[in-house]
């Protein structure tokens, strides 16, 4: 049975890199691992050194397991679904030509997350992997990832949109008719016509569609799915992480732990002393610079330590894993391998 590791967190905390490093670690410990990245920035490709596409690509890695990576292409995934569920090639083509479908498949709010789940389902269903690591889209709220499919479903719910596009088909009261009339006028009849055609074409597809997304929802709430929160030791990132945790719990999902990036270690009793062959005059400039450096490092480390303690207190079960700052960003596979050494086994 394929397991799923979901890496959550707001943007800018190294989530994509950490997800990739987790997959590296899984490969190193003998698993067939695949990492699905959704972040539209091509950071992961930079680090893995492969051209990432919508299908898994093998990453050359020296490990007992295997490592594959892919980057979600929202439009291609939508088109794939239409191909799979459309009753005929002609019906599929008519959908592809529909202006509303074009807009939905490239920019409907939440459809990125929805397609991520669709892709996740494909990966799990193929049974080619022991573990799928999912790098979630950067959202401010944890639940956006889970709410997005609900939102997309609401769009496809004929009971609501059906009224909007085909108000003549049911018995509605005068108020509803009035509302629909105003919305039609504001949006323009062309849009309404496109949407209405879209739903006519989609009506044959929606059962298969719905069944799959229910299966993904079940998978994500089962014990085969584990959640990790990627954050950094800075105060705003921690505040986001704690808020995130609360939202996961609200959804009755258990957080395994926090992966805290770029934690500064304490310099300890470090103090600068003038070496014998450096003159006192030279040292007058350097000595204070070193003192300032050590002082800055010590206070940053203290803030980070307090931050880690605060994260540990925020949950009774989630573990806290500080990860070192590996310098100016991880740019290649060996950097990911170094980070992977510090990660827990998931």
């Amino acid at each position: 049975m394929t397991r799923v590791i979901v890496c959550c967190g707001v943007g800018g905390v190294g989530k994509t890199t950490t997800s990739a490093a987790l997959a590296v670690r899984l490969a190193k410990t003998g698993h067939r691992a695949v990492v699905l990245t959704i972040d539209p920035a091509r950071r992961l490709a930079d680090a893995l050194g492969v051209e990432l596409g919508n299908e898994p690509r093998a990453v050359a890695i020296d490990a007992p397991g295997t490592l594959h990576a892919l980057m979600l292409d929202r439009k291609a995934t939508w088109d794939g679904i239409i191909h799979r569920f459309a009753p005929s090639a002609e019906a599929a083509q008519r959908l592809f030509d529909n202006r509303y479908y074009k807009a939905v498949s490239t920019r409907l709010g939440g459809s990125h997350e929805f397609m991520a789940m669709e892709k996740l389902y494909e990966l799990v269903e193929s049974e080619r992997w022991d573990v799928v690591v999912v790098d979630t889209p950067p959202t401010q709220h944890a639940l956006d990832f889970f709410r997005a499919p609900d939102r997309v479903h609401r769009v496809f719910d004929r009971s609501v949109i059906g009224i909007l596009v085909e108000p003549g088909k049911g018995l509605f009261n005068a108020a509803t008719r009035k509302v629909v009339g105003v919305l039609h006028r504001m949006a323009g009849e062309r849009v309404i016509g496109d949407i209405s055609e879209f739903f006519r074409l989609m009506s044959g597809l929606s059962t298969g569609f719905r069944k799959r997304s229910r299966a993904v929802a079940d998978l994500l709430s089962s014990d085969r799915s584990h959640y990790w929160l990627v954050t950094s030791a800075s105060a705003p990132a921690r505040a986001d992480a704690v808020a995130f945790l609360a939202e996961l719990e609200e959804r009755e999902l258990t957080l395994q732990g926090f992966l805290v990036n770029r934690v500064i270690p304490d310099p300890g009793e470090l103090a600068a002393e003038r070496p014998a062959d450096i003159g006192e005059a030279e040292w007058t400039e350097w000595g204070p610079a070193f003192d300032a450096l050590i002082h800055a490092r010590r206070s940053e480390a203290a803030r980070h330590r307090a931050g880690l303690a605060q994260l540990a207190q925020s949950s009774t079960h989630a573990s806290v894993h500080p990860l070192p700052d590996l310098g100016s960003g991880i740019a290649d596979l060996s950097g990911l391998e170094r980070l992977a050494e510090h990660l827990p086994d998931v």
């Binding site: 807009a103 920019r107 409907l108 939102r151 609501v160 909007l164 009035k178 509302v179 105003v182 949006a187």
Partner: peptide, 22 residues
């Protein structure tokens, strides 16, 4: 009319359904 139209679940669905409207 504003209240009728804009405080309505149909309108919320409409906002969700049309990409770029929000």
């Amino acid at each position: 009319l504003v209240r009728l139209v804009f405080h309505n679940r149909l309108t919320a669905a409409f906002l969700d359904a049309i990409p770029g409207l929000q």
